[in-house]
Computed example of a mutant assay.
Amino acid sequence: MRTQNNFFANNLGFLRNRMKISQQDLACKLNITRKKLSALETGQTRNPIVEDLMRFSDFYRLTIDTLLSVDLPRLGELQLQELQRGGDIYPRGTKLRILATTITPDNKEHVEMVTLKAKAGYSAGYGDPDYIAQLPVFHMPQLPKDRKFRMFPVSGDSMLPVRNGSYVIVEYMQDWTVVKCGTPCVVITKNDGIVFKVVENKIEAEGTLLMISLNPAYKPYELSVNEVLELWKYHSYWTDEELEPVTTSGHLLQKIEEVHRELKALSQKL
C-alpha cells in the first residue's frame, strides 16, 4: 500500500523488474537485506530513511523527488531514459509536465491517433493518462524508435497541400528552443486548441512563435510561448483521398487536338 501521491513502493518494484534483476541480487548491490527491500517494494515501510532514498536514487539514476512523486509505470521507455539522463520533468520553454503516453506490453511507444471526435477535448485532456489511453493506437515500424510520435487531424485549408481531413504524423518536442525556423509543427494551445502551422522560433529573443500558413490567404500571427501546452514537429502526413491522375502539358495538348478534330468533323457535316 502507498500513501496518496507517493509512488515510491510501486516505482521500486517496477524499476527492478524493468532491469530484470531479482530482489536478492539487488539487495546485494545496495548492501541491504532482501527482507528490507521486500518491505520497501510492498509499501510496508511507510517512511523510508534518507539513506535508503539516496541508495535507490543513485542506483536507478533518478531524483528522489521523481521516485516519490512520479508514477513511473505510466511513462514510456523513452521518457524514462530521458529522466535517467538528467532530464527535468519541467522541460525548457514551459511548465510542462511529463508527456502522457501509451506503451505496448514490452514497453515500446504507441503512435496515438487524436481523432476528430477527440480533438475538441485534447487541450484539456493532453496531460491525463486516462484520456490518452482511450485514443486509438497504431504501430508504424518505419518511424524512428528513439522518438515519440502522435497523429493529429488537419482542419481547414490554411496548410495546403495538406488538405482538410488529413492526419499529420508528428514528433514530440521536449525542448521547444531547438525547433528550427521554418519547421511545420502541431502546436497545442490553451485557447485555440490544435493548430498546424509553419513555425518561426522566436522563443529566445521574444518568447513567441511566429505562426505561418502555407496558404498565403492566411496572415502570420505571433503566439506567446505561455499559450503553448505541447509542441510536435512535422514528420509526414496521411490521407484517404483518392489519387487524381496528373495531367502533363503533352497530354493536355493531345486532348485539345482531339477536340479540334471533333469540332472540324462536326462542322463538315453541317
Results as ranks from 00 to 15, higher is better:
Asp58Leu: 12
Val246Asn: 06
Glu222Thr: 13
Lys119Tyr: 04
Thr3Ser: 11
Val179Leu: 14
Trp238Ala: 12
Asn215Thr: 00
Glu206Val: 02
Val246Pro: 00
Gln254Asn: 13
Ala124Met: 06
Leu231Tyr: 02
Glu200Ser: 11
Val111Gly: 06
Lys219His: 07
Arg163Glu: 14
Cys181Pro: 04
Phe138Met: 13
Asn191Glu: 15
Ala27Pro: 03
Lys190Thr: 11
Val187Phe: 09
Leu223Asn: 07
Gly86Ala: 07
Leu68Cys: 15
Leu209Phe: 15
Asn107Tyr: 11
His251Asn: 10
Arg34Tyr: 12
Asp25Met: 06
Asp130Lys: 12
Gln23Gly: 08
Val178Lys: 14
Val70Thr: 15
Gly193Phe: 04
Lys29Ile: 05
Gln174Leu: 12
Met19Trp: 05
Gly87Cys: 08
Asp88Pro: 00
Ala9Ser: 15
Met140Trp: 08
Leu78Gly: 05
Arg147Ala: 15
Val228Lys: 03
Lys119Asn: 15
Leu266Tyr: 13
Leu78Phe: 05
His139Cys: 03
Leu72Pro: 02
Thr208Trp: 02
Glu262Val: 01
Thr177Ile: 13
Leu83Arg: 07
Phe152Asn: 09
His139Leu: 11
Thr45Trp: 01
Leu80Gly: 08
Leu67Trp: 05
Ile89Asn: 09
Arg61Val: 02
Ala27Gly: 08
Gly76Leu: 07
Gln44Val: 04
Lys148Arg: 12
Glu258Leu: 14
Leu252Gly: 02
Met211Ala: 09
Glu227Gln: 11
Arg97Ser: 14
Glu51Thr: 13
Tyr172Met: 01
Ile64Asp: 01
Glu171Pro: 00
Phe8Arg: 00
Leu266Arg: 15
Val137Glu: 07
Asn6Leu: 04
Ala205Asn: 14
Asp130Thr: 14
Leu37His: 04
Met54Leu: 14
Arg85Gln: 15
Thr102Cys: 12
Glu109Ile: 00
Gln4Ser: 09
Thr94Ile: 09
Met151Phe: 09
Gln134Tyr: 00
Val199Lys: 03
Asp128Gly: 05
Asp71Trp: 01
Thr189Ser: 10
Lys233Asp: 03
Phe56Ile: 07
Ser166Phe: 00
Phe56Ser: 06
Glu206Arg: 13
Asn6Gln: 09
Val50Ile: 14
Leu143Asn: 06
Arg150Asn: 03
Ile212Lys: 13
Tyr172Thr: 05
Asn31Arg: 11
Cys181Tyr: 00
Asn6Tyr: 01
Asn10Ile: 08
Gly13Ser: 15
Glu262Pro: 02
Lys108His: 12
Thr45Tyr: 01
Ser267Tyr: 06
Thr101Pro: 00
Ser57Leu: 07
Arg18Trp: 02
Asp88Ser: 15
Phe14Ser: 07
Gly93Arg: 04
Met19Tyr: 10
Thr183Met: 14
Arg34Ile: 10
Glu171Ser: 14
Phe8Pro: 00
Tyr122Arg: 01
Ala205Thr: 13
Leu116Thr: 08
Leu143His: 08
Arg18Tyr: 08
Gly87Asn: 09
Ala124Ser: 13
Asn47Phe: 11
Pro48Gln: 10
Asn6Phe: 03
Asn10Thr: 11
